[in-house]
């Protein structure tokens, strides 16, 4: 697959920007570790409320300098700031909020995803890990009204991450609705992966070449707009 690694897709920041533009105003959103965390940089000033499962609603931008306080961190353990209207609560309350479908969208990273909306993200046997971190990922998948995945389209050495069958332990089955990568925006439909958008300079054939399941190409296929 060496040739396939030459595809020049979006930076992680631009993947995050593309997801940010998909989020609607007036929604409650939870961002997972990795590329999803970067989304917070693109929604400042918008009417989107970030829930952090550590126990905070209306999480503000990352803290710097004198604002850094170890008692004010997000679920990725990054120092953050509070906003007008921020509230704090304990972890049991936080996950009741999540399981009870009060969060509109969760955006997570993934190691593998298939065309049925199953994904794997908590344990990476390829790195020789015998245990993994579930963290809040399974709770968010089960509870958020919509689940988006934001990730690189392939592994660093060009292996498929969009696969026919998961070979890593699953985080959730059939829950993912949209997939955002450095190459494309895809929707998980009952018929399979529907390719809606491609990154600038990338063709549908390029995306298919690094995607194991057969893509359905939208009649309205577009280049991503920023």
């Amino acid at each position: 697959m060496a040739e396939k690694t030459k595809l020049k897709g979006l930076s992680r920041e631009l993947i995050a920007l593309r997801v940010a533009s998909e989020l609607e105003d007036g929604t409650y959103v939870n961002l997972g570790i990795g590329i999803p965390t970067l989304i917070s940089d693109w929604i400042e000033g918008r009417d989107i409320v970030l829930q952090s499962e550590i126990g905070m609603l209306k999480t503000g931008p990352l803290a710097t300098g004198d604002d850094v306080d170890q008692d004010l961190i997000n679920a990725s353990c990054q120092p953050v700031t509070a906003l007008e209207g921020t509230s704090y609560f304990d972890i049991a309350e936080s996950f009741g909020m999540i399981r009870g479908q009060h969060i509109d969208v969760a955006v997570m990273g993934a190691l593998q995803i298939n065309d049925k909306g199953d994904y794997a993200g908590w344990s990476n046997p390829a790195r020789g890990l015998f245990v993994g971190n579930i963290g809040g990922s399974m709770d968010l998948c089960a509870g958020a009204k919509k689940l988006y995945i934001a990730m690189e389209h392939t592994t660093r050495d060009g292996q498929y991450k969009v696969v026919k069958e998961l070979s890593y332990p699953a985080t959730a089955l059939g829950m993912v609705s949209m997939l955002f990568t450095d190459l494309a925006v895809m929707e998980i439909t009952p018929k399979g992966l529907l390719l809606h958008e491609v990154a600038p300079g990338i063709s549908a054939e390029d995306v298919q070449s690094v995607t194991e399941p057969k893509l359905i190409i939208s009649k309205d296929l577009q280049e991503m707009q920023f």
Partner: peptide, 20 residues
């Protein structure tokens, strides 16, 4: 864990909170 000296039970975070 890799030396076989400790057992690990991995629990989803919200399930951990609710079990408690």
């Amino acid at each position: 864990y890799n030396e076989g000296k400790v057992e690990i039970e991995v629990v989803p975070q919200g399930t951990l909170a609710e079990r408690i």
